[in-house]
C-alpha cells in the first residue's frame, strides 16, 4: 500500500487561502512534502528542478491558466508522468471535459472536504496508508 507521507505534491493557486486549504487537507491525509506556488510558470520551473508525484492546480490564474499549465506539463517529456488534479470553482462540465482531454487525472470542486480529496488521490495512487 503506498504511503501518503511519501507522495510529493505541488499546489498551484493564485489565492493563498486556497493553497493553505489544500495543504491543510493534504496534511490531514498524511502528505508531508507539499510545495506551493502562486503562479503556474513558477511551479513549472520548480517541477523541472525537482519533480513531484501530483499537482493540484487552480484553473483561473493570471499569466498562465490551469489548462495551459497542464498542457505544458504533458508536453514536457520529463514531466508528463505527473498526476494532475484540477481545482475548479464551479462544477463546469465543459471545463472538466477539456481538462480530461488535456490529460488531467481528476478534478476537485471548491469547496472540498478532506474525504473527497482523499478519494480523488486514491483514484490515482490506490488506497493510501
Amino acid at each position: 500500500m503506498p504511503q501518503a507521507s511519501k507522495i510529493r505534491a505541488v499546489v498551484v493557486d493564485d489565492q493563498l487561502t486556497m493553497r493553505t486549504l489544500v495543504r491543510s487537507c493534504l496534511q490531514q491525509i498524511g502528505l508531508t512534502d507539499i510545495r506551493e506556488f502562486p503562479k503556474a510558470p513558477e511551479a513549472l520551473s520548480a517541477l523541472k528542478a525537482q519533480p513531484a508525484h501530483i499537482v493540484f492546480s487552480d484553473f483561473n490564474m493570471p499569466e498562465m491558466d490551469g489548462l495551459e499549465f497542464l498542457r505544458s506539463i504533458r508536453s514536457d517529456p520529463s514531466l508528463k508522468g505527473i498526476g494532475f488534479i484540477l481545482l475548479t470553482g464551479r462544477a463546469d462540465a465543459d471545463l472538466v471535459k477539456r481538462a480530461a482531454q488535456f490529460g488531467a487525472n481528476n478534478y476537485l470542486v471548491k469547496p472540498f472536504t478532506v474525504a473527497v480529496m482523499k478519494q480523488k488521490l486514491e483514484q490515482i495512487f490506490g488506497a493510501l496508508s
Binding site: P51, G81, G83, R90, A93, K97, Y107, Q123
Partner: peptide, 23 residues
C-alpha cells in the same frame, strides 16, 4: 446560490501512469 457540485461520472479520466524515475 452556488450550484451544488455535480459529479461528472460520465467523464473518463486518463488511466494514471505516473513514473518520475530515479531523480
Amino acid at each position: 446560490g452556488a450550484p451544488a457540485p455535480a459529479d461528472f461520472e460520465g467523464l473518463a479520466f486518463a488511466p494514471v501512469m505516473i513514473d518520475i524515475g530515479d531523480e
